[in-house]
Computed example of a mutant assay.
Amino acid sequence: MDFGDYVSSVPIKDCVVGQEYWIDVTHVNNPHSFFVRLIDFRMDIDILEECGKAVEDSEVTIGRVVIYLSGTLRKHVRGLVYFIHWHNVMKCDLKAIDYGCTDIGVPTSKIYKPKTPSKMVPLAIHCKLANCVPLNTDIWEAKTTEAMLTYIGKERTKMIVKNKMYNQLSVDLINSCPDDIATMLAYTNYSSLSFGNEISISRLRAPMPQLIEPEFKCLNLHIDEVLHVRVQSGKTLDSFFVARTYDFKQYSLDHSDFTAYCKSKRVIVDKEIEVGNLVAYKSLSGTAYERAVILELIKPGNKLRLQKIDWGDIVTATQMELKPITCDMYINKPAMAIYCSTGKSVIWDNGLHKFLYPGFEFMIKIKELGDGFNKPNVVDVFPVNT
């Protein structure tokens, strides 16, 4: 197999509700947050995880896929760099993209280039057990997670997709246990069964799966539409975010009002921390708030991974840095950031570095529509003065 040309087709949106898949469970946080990988990729993992040359500090950037020695998994794995620390030496926080776990503070001495360059997408799929809720609380106890790990064991597992949510699947897991994993946890008094929100019921026809979308909306764009934009974030031509210049001017005028609104709100509570929820994130400057969508709970009660919907970049934050957004005006206002990709290898006379500098203005023409923040809009780019 030529991994340089191969692109996997395992994104969540490609999984079909009602379909069965054979999987390996690769990492478990709790019954509402665990990761699986299709067994079809068992033979590919060894090749993907082969180490190449050691990386130099200057080569390590946020968003780069590398091979690193995972302390969690005790082996070399593919990892996505999502944060860089500088304390005398460079250390990185990495997401094991084929397993789902994270490693914090990995020194660059344990980070390598992939031996075989690959376009293989992350193979770990984020899941939750359908119809499974904690006992008399909103928090999963450690003993419940331990019981789940025991029932799953090391064998292959059948996964039935019950529902599709933003960035996560709701599933049943079936193996050699007497019943499915959610039912086993309930039978042994580690959890309860609930059928409240997993499907919508119609009196006129069979139950229909409900696709849960994130709370925010994206701009409605059109093929061949030409826009005057500015760079919001991004490091490569394959993945960057822009905003219409007139939207950004209005954003600048309204931002102080939004920050004042957020400062008057309480900190979010545990029950409001759900993947896909729209929240207000306190920026690193500490003086302003930004709208953001929750992507992932990295460590229960501690860090969350967010994407700022008006800028596009991904950040980490603690619960204390977040406020709820309950005002319809801020909930219904479309995300200002537009996810883009362009195939142009040369960007006129200014060069790529300036092209992707935040605030740099140019024109785009929509050639192919994307899918919100999941798939970029393919665009042509050209200077403002043409």
Rank of each mutant, 00 (worst) to 15 (best):
R244T: 05
Y82S: 05
V121I: 07
N302P: 00
R244A: 07
M43L: 13
V231I: 15
M184V: 00
P134H: 05
R156K: 12
K344Q: 15
K365I: 00
A280L: 04
E49P: 00
R244L: 02
K263W: 11
K115M: 12
N350T: 09
K365V: 02
Y21M: 04
D328Q: 10
N30E: 12
R266H: 13
V25T: 06
I309K: 01
W86G: 07
S170F: 02
K271N: 15
E321L: 11
K75R: 14
S239Q: 11
K375N: 14
L219M: 12
M363N: 13
K53Y: 10
E321R: 04
G286S: 10
H85I: 02
L356G: 06
I152K: 01
K323Y: 04
F355D: 08
F248T: 00
T116P: 02
S9N: 13
R64A: 15
V267Y: 13
L352I: 14
R205M: 11
I294S: 02
P178A: 11
A182Q: 03
G71H: 13
G301L: 08
P209E: 03
G351L: 08
L129N: 02
I325V: 11
I294C: 04
L73W: 03
K271S: 15
C101R: 03
G4V: 05
C92A: 12
H222P: 02
Y339Q: 04
P122C: 09
N332Q: 14
V293H: 02
I314P: 05
C262S: 08
F3I: 08
A243V: 04
L295W: 01
V133M: 09
I139Y: 14
G276S: 03
M159Q: 05
W22A: 10
G18I: 05
P358W: 06
H76W: 11
M148T: 01
N175K: 05
I160K: 14
R78S: 08
A317H: 06
D270S: 15
Y281M: 06
P107A: 12
D57R: 07
W22S: 12
I199A: 07
T183V: 11
G343Q: 07
V89H: 13
A288L: 11
W311E: 13
